[in-house]
Structure formats: structure tokens, C-alpha cells
Design a protein around this nucleic acid. Structure first.
Ligand code: SF4
Ligand code: SF4
Lengths: 133, 133
DNA sequence: TGAAATAGGACTACGCAAGTCGTATTTACA
DNA sequence: TGTAAATACGACTTGCGTAGTCCTATTTCA
């Protein structure tokens, strides 16, 4: 409950790693070994980050990944959003269609929770990869 | 991911409900019908809140629940902690023994995530039931 | 051509969330 | 004193999301 997924953690570690090496090209093998991350899992995370245009892939031998933007322009929220695919929400009504919650009409806590939601979004949005290298 | 459990939401709704009625005694039946919450689920939530000494139970006919403290003295964090039983943590190393994470020694993001963790704890701790009635 | 690398789908295992069911216990009140 | 209204509590099912594994295809450098 309220926990980030391992995929997101791996993604943050990877992006931070590349940034810390001044955007030098890095491979899945290199990163997975250095941080003891299962390489297959990390591989898929990198592929999602690529699709989300946060990093750029270089295929073939001597290939790997580099950042697609400057580290100052990649937020923790970007990484989460791209890897998860879904909206970040601390309650169903913030993560999906509000009406999906069968209680929505009678719910008396959605407004207070909304404040927490906004606060969390702000924290994730304002923390950039450049500050965690 | 990052979502509060329904049990916590139900607990918050229930506690807020009792507080909004000036601590008048309320039953599971009454609350579950008013907010369309499955009564069996709510019942167990109330029992946990009772064990956690946030509310007081009154058994038998004409029984129900009242708050065990003033609404100003019950935080959202109290409700979460009592219902979940476990520590709130946005990552494994904050929720359980840090060594449980097989990556802990090499992890480069635990400090930045710690800031987010701390912020979240503050928000949950400072929001009291009295402000959401 | 072969090795190194990314791309990506299929699948399993496990744990947790949510809800259901059944039964025991307590207590007000007729 | 009996019955109805209420809490107490454990066992169980079902479904879903997370984490991880495996396998194969494709790209590209040397
Ligand atoms: S409406 Fe209320 S109960 Fe439904 S998801 Fe939003 S906060 Fe939770
Ligand atoms: S140590 Fe790093 S990887 Fe392990 S749980 Fe904490 S943050 Fe996540």
C-alpha cells in the first residue's frame, strides 16, 4: 500500500546512473550488474523509458542508452508516468474515471484526499533527476 | 500503485461520519447503508479502529461506536497506521527492515526517496479528522 | 559472419486487496 | 427471561497486480 513499484525504482536508478556519467552510453548489462537488478526486468523498464522518450536507445553491438533530455528536464513524475502507463492517484477516483468508484456519489473524503493528491503530484513533479545524482 | 486501500478509505469515512455527528453513537449498519459500503468489510475496519483505541465500541442492542478521542486529536496517519498494521513506506526499505531489500547496499535513490517519504508522513500526520468534517 | 546489444511477447509464481460467510458474544428492553 | 440488535472474529474465495523468468527476433559493429 502506497508503495512505488520496483520497476519505477529500477527506472530511477538507471536514469540517475546515466546522468551521473554525464550521459555516457550505458548498457542494461552494466547497470543490472552494478546495482544487482534482474537484467530482464531492467531491460523492459528501459524499453518503456525509451518509448516514453525519456531516454534514447542505441541498438546493436556497442549500443546502449543515453538520456533524451537534460537531467534537469526529467522529473521523478516523468519516470513514474512513463513506466506505469497509468495516472498516479492515491485513490481510485484520482487514478481512473471518478465514476468507477461505486461510492463516489456518497464519498465525503475525496476533497481532503484531493489535497494530499495535489501535494504528492507537486513533490514528484518538482524533483528532477539532476538533483538526485 | 501508491493507492490507499479501500479499508483505509472506509475507516476515514466512518470516523469522519461520527465526528460530523458530534460523536453521537453510530452503528455499522447506519454507516454502511449511508455510504454504500459493504457492511462486513466495514465491520472489520471498525474493529481494528477499536483495537487501535481511536474509537470505542458499545456492544449489544442500541450499541455502536463513538470516537475515543477528540476529532482534533485523530490524524489521517493514525487511521492508516491502525488499519494497516504495518508502517507506511513508499519503498520497501521504509516500510520494513531496510536489509530486506536485496539492493539496499547499492541503491542510490533511497536518500531522495526518503525526502518524499518524510513529506508524505508530514502530510498524513498533520491532517486531522476535525479538518475534514 | 558472429558477437553484443536492444525489442518484445508469453508465461509463471506469489502476495495482497476486497469481499463473503458463518458463528459466537454482548446487552437493552419488552 | 427471551429475543432482537448489535459487536467480535476467524476462515474462506476470488481477482488482480507485482516481480520475475524464458524465449526469440532484430539491429549493428567489428
Ligand atoms: S470517491 Fe471516495 S471512496 Fe471512491 S475512490 Fe475517491 S476517495 Fe476513494
Ligand atoms: S533500498 Fe532502494 S531499492 Fe531498496 S527499497 Fe529502498 S529505495 Fe527501493
Amino acid at each position: 500500500m502506497l508503495k512505488l513499484s520496483k520497476k519505477v525504482e529500477y527506472g530511477l536508478i538507471a536514469v540517475r546512473h546515466i546522468a551521473s556519467l554525464n550521459n555516457q552510453i550505458s548498457t542494461v548489462k552494466e547497470i543490472s550488474e552494478k546495482y544487482a537488478i534482474p537484467s530482464d526486468v531492467l531491460a523492459k523498464v528501459m524499453q518503456r523509458l525509451t518509448k516514453g522518450k525519456l531516454i534514447t536507445s542505441h541498438q546493436g553491438a556497442m549500443g546502449g542508452y543515453t538520456l533524451a533530455r537534460r537531467a534537469e528536464e526529467i522529473s521523478v513524475m516523468d519516470v513514474i508516468a512513463v513506466i506505469e502507463g497509468t495516472q498516479v492517484g492515491i485513490a481510485q477516483c484520482f487514478a481512473e474515471e471518478p465514476q468507477n468508484c461505486s461510492i463516489f456519489h456518497a464519498c465525503t473524503i475525496k476533497n481532503p484526499l484531493g489535497k494530499i493528491q495535489h501535494n504528492l503530484e507537486h513533490v514528484f513533479n518538482s524533483m528532477k533527476v539532476s538533483e538526485i545524482v
